[in-house]
C-alpha cells in the first residue's frame, strides 16, 4: 500500500464533503432525500464497476447480474427461508464474487480480448434476466415484495428516508475507499499494467488470472451489496429494473461520461447525472418519458467527441493548464 492511500484517508477533501452529506437528511425534503439516496446508490454501482471497467480496462456488461443477485437472492432468502438480510447480503456477495471469478476464468482460459469479454459478460446479463424470470424462488417475472420496514437495524432495516440515505452514504464511501486502496496497492498496478499491455505484463511475471479475478470479485461483491441495499430500500425488487442489462448500460454510461480509471469521474458523474435525470423525470415524466435517457445519449456523444477520457479528467487537465498560464 502506497503512502498516498493514507494521505487520501486523512484528507479533509474526503471528510468535509462526507460530513456535509451526512447532514443533508435534516435539510432536504423527503423527495430530494430520495433522489440523494438513489444518487449515492449509483455512486456505489459506478465505482464498483470502475474496478473492472476503469482500472482493469475491461468493459464488463454483467454487473446487472451481480446487482440482481444481491437484490433478489438476499430478499428471497429473507422472505422464503427467514435468513437475516445482513447474512443474506454476505451470501449474495459471495455468490456474485464466484460468478465474477468464473467470468474471469473464461476470459483467461480462452484469451477473450476486450470485445469478446464485453459480449460474454453481456450474455451472462441476458441469461441472468431469463433465469430470474423462470425461478419462482427468486420471484419470477413479478418480483419480490419485502415485509414492512420497522427500523430494526439487526434485520437490515434502516427505518425510512434518512436511515437509507446514511446507509447508501456509508456504502458509497466504502466503494470509494476500496477504489483508492486498489489504485495504491499492488493489485491496482497489476491491473493497470494488464490493461495497458497484457503481453508485456505477463512477460514480467504478473499473474493474469489471479489479478483480474480478484478485481472482478471485488467489483461483483460491491455491486451485489448495493443491490441488497437497493432492494431493502425500495421494499420491492423489480427484476426488470435490477436484473436487466439496461441497468449495466446505465452504470457504464455514467462511469464513462465521468471518466474511467480514477474514482473521481464515476463519483461526480453519478452525483450530477442521477439527480438531473430524476428531476427531469419528475418535471417531464408525464409528457416526455425517457428524457433522462435522451440526456445521457447526448452527453455520451458530446463526451466521446470532445474528451474521450471523460469529463472529470478533462476538467482536471484544463485546471492544470489554467494554473500554469
Amino acid at each position: 500500500m502506497r503512502p498516498d492511500f493514507f494521505q487520501f484517508l486523512r484528507s479533509p477533501l474526503l471528510w468535509i464533503p462526507v460530513a456535509i452529506a451526512a447532514c443533508l437528511p435534516w435539510g432536504l425534503s423527503a423527495y430530494h432525500l430520495a433522489i440523494g439516496t438513489l444518487a449515492l446508490l449509483y455512486v456505489s454501482l459506478a465505482l464498483a464497476w470502475n474496478v473492472v471497467g476503469g482500472i482493469a480496462g475491461q468493459i464488463s456488461l454483467a454487473n446487472s447480474v451481480f446487482v440482481g443477485t444481491g437484490a433478489l437472492l438476499a430478499s428471497a432468502l429473507y422472505i422464503r427461508l427467514g435468513i437475516d438480510m445482513w447474512f443474506g447480503m454476505v451470501i449474495a456477495a459471495a455468490v456474485s464474487a464466484i460468478l465474477g471469478v468464473f467470468m474471469s476464468l473464461l476470459d483467461a482460459r480462452f484469451r477473450l480480448g476486450h470485445l469478446s469479454f464485453a459480449l460474454v459478460t453481456l450474455a451472462f446479463a441476458e441469461i441472468g434476466e431469463l433465469v430470474v424470470a423462470g425461478t419462482d424462488f427468486l420471484g419470477g417475472a413479478s418480483g419480490l415484495d419485502l415485509p414492512k420496514d420497522h427500523g430494526r437495524f439487526w434485520l437490515f432495516e434502516f427505518g425510512g428516508g434518512p436511515g437509507y440515505f446514511w446507509a447508501a452514504l456509508v456504502l458509497a464511501l466504502i466503494c470509494l475507499v476500496v477504489n483508492q486502496a486498489i489504485l495504491s496497492s499492488r493489485l491496482g498496478y497489476y491491473l493497470r499494467a494488464l490493461r495497458d499491455n497484457e503481453d508485456a505484463a505477463q512477460a514480467i511475471g504478473i499473474e493474469l488470472f489471479r489479478s483480474k479475478a480478484t478485481g472482478m470479485a471485488i467489483s461483483a461483491a460491491l455491486s451485489s451489496v448495493a443491490g441488497t441495499l437497493f432492494a431493502r430500500y425500495s421494499n420491492f425488487v423489480d427484476p426488470t429494473l435490477l436484473a436487466s442489462p439496461n441497468l449495466t448500460i446505465e452504470i457504464v454510461l455514467i462511469a464513462t461520461i465521468g471518466g474511467l480509471g480514477t474514482p473521481l469521474g464515476p463519483l461526480i458523474a453519478a452525483l450530477v447525472l442521477i439527480p438531473v435525470g430524476e428531476i427531469l423525470r419528475g418535471q417531464f415524466g408525464g409528457t416526455l418519458p425517457g428524457l433522462h435517457f435522451f440526456l445521457y445519449g447526448v452527453l455520451i456523444i458530446v463526451v466521446v467527441l470532445t474528451s474521450p477520457q471523460g469529463i472529470v479528467p478533462r476538467l482536471l487537465s484544463l485546471r492544470r493548464r489554467f494554473r500554469r498560464a
Binding site: R186, Y189, N197, D199, A203, I204
Partner: peptide, 29 residues
C-alpha cells in the same frame, strides 16, 4: 518469470501511463 526467464517483448511495450520508476518496480514484482 519466477524461475528466471524474463522476456523483453518486441516493440518495447512499456506501460505508457505509468512513471518510469513504476514501470521498473513492476518489473521486480
Amino acid at each position: 518469470v519466477s524461475r528466471g526467464i524474463v522476456q523483453v517483448p518486441e516493440g518495447r511495450q512499456v506501460f505508457p501511463r505509468m512513471s518510469v520508476l513504476d514501470n521498473l518496480l513492476l518489473g521486480g514484482t
